[in-house]
Nucleic acid binder design. Structure first.
Lengths: 196, 196
DNA sequence: CGCAGATGTTAGTCATTATTAACGTTACCG
DNA sequence: CGGTAACGTTAATAATGACTAACATCTGCG
């Protein structure tokens, strides 16, 4: 009855659709709280159809987190090299992170909750990308606030991530643009306060 | 063989022990990623022994989250009423939250991840306590920074929670006292930057 | 002593769930 | 046309896991 033209569809669009749906579900109920059947249902197919696109549930999660880590890291890195000075570099990092957090809250949520469920080959790669991303921030901050110990800057970076990623918890309190400006201002001030 | 004196034990100490172990496990692997068997194993008994202390897995989680919400809310409320002015009240709130986050990272983690798995009678109570706690912050902030819209202050409060609760992610980067001071300074600055 | 209560244990039970198997269908390509 | 690749479907299968039942044990108290 409902005949959707299958092969006219964009190549790989199905994979993306599944990843999106899974991200929402994982964010809402946690990796183990979501069944393959749930994910299938969310994209209109039922259950085992997923195995035509992913080798398993863990592989799906792995790909999702790997993609997020890569996007954050590479877009951050690119914008930093384009920046004229440390001040602008920090602005670029803040923009990237805020834009991502506001437009993909589910991905952000899953990204910092579910690493523990990623199996080992991929886990290491994701960790490495996360570490590199943090180091981008620390490098910029070191240049901007010289003389402050790296350990403190690293902790401050994590704290700012926590601040920026709070977005999913305050869903809809403010319009996105206002939220973005609020977060940027708070993050900048928090980082500047890094030294007592 | 290994005979531990059972009834000489502190009354209710077993419950607390179980709650502690469960908090660690839930924080590490998520509610659905932990089995009753796992929790039992973590306290030296095996599996169904838990049902002597809790009516089920969900009840265990409910009690855990209810307790956290209550402790945050009531200790915050008490210290706020003791404060001489809004400035001191904010300091008190910051102290409570930071102390709690640093000393019970697992509880903090579970508290803001697993509300969705709490069944309905308790869910509502926890939500109410959380809302009240946020309102304590917003009230103090309104007094401290008059003229700023409540919606912005609410969003800022959530953002500061995210900042302070980042503790589990930067485990051991800094000694606790230094971490506490760093977080306090960053949070204060972030809140002060609430207005553009 | 002998019972009560608190706390465990092991062996079911029953549902859920990831994954695989076996089997269509549809569209394009030679 | 005929075949093949992409994509789905509905049954198994096999494991896991929450919860219950039936059965100890041990302490303290009358």
């Amino acid at each position: 009855m409902t005949t959707v033209q299958p092969s006219t569809r964009n190549r790989g669009s199905r994979r993306a659709e599944i990843l999106d749906a899974a991200a929402e579900l994982f964010a809402a109920r946690g990796f183990h709280g979501v069944s393959i059947e749930d994910i299938g249902g969310a994209v209109g197919t039922s259950g085992p159809a997923l195995y035509r696109h992913f080798s398993g549930k863990e592989a799906l999660l792995s790909e999702m987190l790997l993609d997020v880590s890569e996007r954050l890291h590479t877009s951050g890195a690119r914008r930093v090299t384009e920046a004229a000075d440390a001040e602008q570099a920090l602005d670029a990092l803040l923009s990237c992170q805020i834009e991502f957090a506001l437009s993909h809250p589910a991905l952000i949520t899953v990204h910092d909750r579910e690493l523990g469920n990623v199996p080992e080959p991929a886990r290491r790669r994701i960790r490495r990308l996360q570490r590199l991303y943090v180091e981008e921030w620390v490098t910029v901050l070191s240049e901007l606030y010289p003389g402050r110990p790296q350990a403190g800057l690293r902790a401050a970076t994590h704290a700012v991530f926590g601040l920026l990623n709070s977005t999913p918890h305050s869903a809809g309190e403010l319009p996105p643009a206002a939220m973005a400006e609020l977060l940027r201002g708070m993050a900048r001030a928090a980082l500047a306060a890094t030294q007592g």
